[in-house]
Structure formats: C-alpha cells, structure tokens
Amino acid sequence: MKITHIFLISLLVSLVIPLAPAQAARNSPDNIYEVKVGDTLPDIAKKYDTSSEEIKLTNGMQSDLLLVGQKLWVPITYEVIAGDTIEELASKYHSSVETIKSANKLTNKQLYAGQILKINPKRMTMQGQHILMTKEEFQEWLFNNIFKRKINLIQQHHTWIPSYNRFNGSNHFQLLKGMESYHINKMGWKTIAQNITTFPDGKIAVSRPFNMAPEGSIGPTANSVGIAIEHVGNFDLGQDMMTKEQKDTIIYINALLCIKFGLTPSIDSITYHHWWNVKTGERVLDKGPDYNVKTCPGTGFFGGNSTTSAKKYFYPLISRKMEEIIASMD
C-alpha cells in the first residue's frame, strides 16, 4: 500500500491536534503546544505555569531536547459550562479524573457552571529513560514526536531470556533494568540495546531513545537506520505461546511505525534478526547457515522466521492494521 507524504502528514496532523471546544478556545490556548525555533523547556514551562520536569513526565520525554514541530501536552485553564463532567474533561484534555481533582483540590467530582479549573495532562508511567505505555498511548507519543535520525528499517527480535516465566504481570521495569544492566555491563553497550520492548500483557516500553541507533549483533548496516523491537518471550517452536495481547500490540506498533516513517511492509522495511549474519552483519535472508544466524524472533513467530512466513503471515496483518488506523484518523 502506497501512502503519499502529503496524505500522511495531513493524517498525522489531524490525529495529534484535537479540536478544542469553543469555550476552551475562548478561555485559554489549546493544550497541545507545537515547539518553535528558539523554544526551551524552561520557557515553555513558565508560559504554562508548570515545571520542566512536569512537561517531561506528561510527554514521556527522555531528555531536555526539543525539536521544531514536536508537540507537547501542556496545562490549560478551563471555565466549566453547564453539562460538563469531570470524566468528559479528562478525556478531552488528555488528563484523568484524579489529576484534575488533585490540581484543583476537589473532594468530589461535582462541577458547577463558571468554575475555573486547571487541567493538567496526565503523567506517563516512567522510570529513568524507560516509558511504559499502552499501544494507544504509544500512538499519541509517536505521532507527537519528531525524530532527527533517518529510520527506514524495523527490526523484530525476541528476548529468548527473559521468557514468559520471568514475567509476573507487573515487573515490566524490573525486566527492563535487568536487560539494561546486562547490555551495559556484559556487552559493553552504551545503554539498553533496543528502542522498544513489548510484553505478554500487551504493554509497550520505549527505552533507548529513537534518536539513538540500536546496538547488537544484527550489524551496523541494519542498526544505522533501524528501530529495534524486542518482544519479551521465547518464540521458538515448543516454547512460549504468544498471548493475543502481545500479538495485537506487535501488529499495532509495527503499523504505527510504518505510517510514521512512510514505510510499506516488506523484507526491506520490516526485518527479522534471523536474516542477518551475526559475524559479518550482512543480510542473508533465508540463506544463512545455522551457525552464523540466530533463530530470532523465533521459529514460531507469526508462522515462522523465514521471509516466506513473513510475507504470508506477518506483513498482511500489518498492512490491514495500517488501513484501519488511517481510516480512524481520517
């Protein structure tokens, strides 16, 4: 499926800049701020009566770096009109009921016309550089951000270890920090190797910043223009049976990445670790001898780890999901 850049840009803009109600527009600026030339984080924080740290937490920022065109959720002041509910305001303004209640010292959810509320965006779930998200939160995060590195290859890996028996449903950060420690202390890499990690419950973590190329045995050619995704689990045949939640997330985020970076699913845009010689870093596709390639992302990954299985079982699912997402954005 071919998507023109003009069509893609218009779709993304419509997704990430929701229209504010007339009342909110009259009282305050929209709660999405687009970064302009010369902007600094402290300046934006001062303009919206918040802190740099709060902006970073509500936007999943891994550093103070700002790029022109980047979109940030910011606080707004809102005058309540008849019929407003706190749940509806939280939904409209990327907040939560508890965040609104806390910011305004509300003891219950009752609102009255003329009431002035400060509506802060909800904070993202972060520990250090690791950002834990649902796939829907990842969509917002991805399309709000600008990346200065050229990205045209999405790598698929499985962790092998940790496998499913290491995941208890709530230890996402513990597993991420374990991988990060191993990659730094044992492998000698700068930080955790992968940009993205998916979990059995369908959650997603962004860890290595997208503006940093991944590290690892797939080789410098693939890494220089790549985004690396590690799927927690051992997906070789006879090992972990991938959950529906993780399967849905894998399809969803690959579709989002293809839309974001203007890619069409193919062996040239979505690659398996198995297709790369671990000694030379060259792409060998299905011709690599077993002693020079890994089974990663698993012999049972969406029907197998061959180019044939990817074309038959993986890419069509991503293409269909891209169509669904684009239709929902229109």
Results as ranks from 00 to 15, higher is better:
H157D: 06
L142R: 00
L153V: 04
Y315L: 06
R26F: 12
T221E: 14
N195F: 05
K190S: 13
A222F: 05
S10P: 01
F143N: 03
E87A: 13
N223V: 01
A25F: 04
I270K: 06
K92N: 04
H158Q: 13
I146G: 00
V284H: 03
K294A: 04
L317Y: 10
K287R: 07
L11S: 06
G303Y: 04
M133T: 02
I81F: 06
K177M: 14
S95L: 11
T308N: 05
I218F: 06
W73R: 13
L65T: 06
D64A: 12
F167G: 04
P42Q: 07
F138L: 15
G238D: 12
N145Q: 09
E324M: 12
Y313G: 00
G202H: 13
D290P: 10
Y48A: 08
A310R: 12
K101G: 05
T134A: 02
G219D: 11
K47G: 05
L57Y: 03
S224R: 15
D201C: 08
Y93K: 04
L285V: 09
N168H: 02
S319C: 04
D64T: 09
I250E: 07
I204H: 07
T271W: 12
M126G: 02
I227D: 02
K109L: 00
F138M: 14
L256D: 08
I267F: 03
K135V: 12
L89N: 01
S51G: 01
I204P: 02
S266A: 08
Q156R: 15
W141Q: 00
A222T: 04
K101F: 11
Q70W: 03
M241Q: 11
T77L: 15
G83A: 03
E282N: 10
E282M: 00
L41W: 07
W160Q: 15
S52A: 15
F314Q: 08
D240M: 11
V293Y: 06
S28V: 01
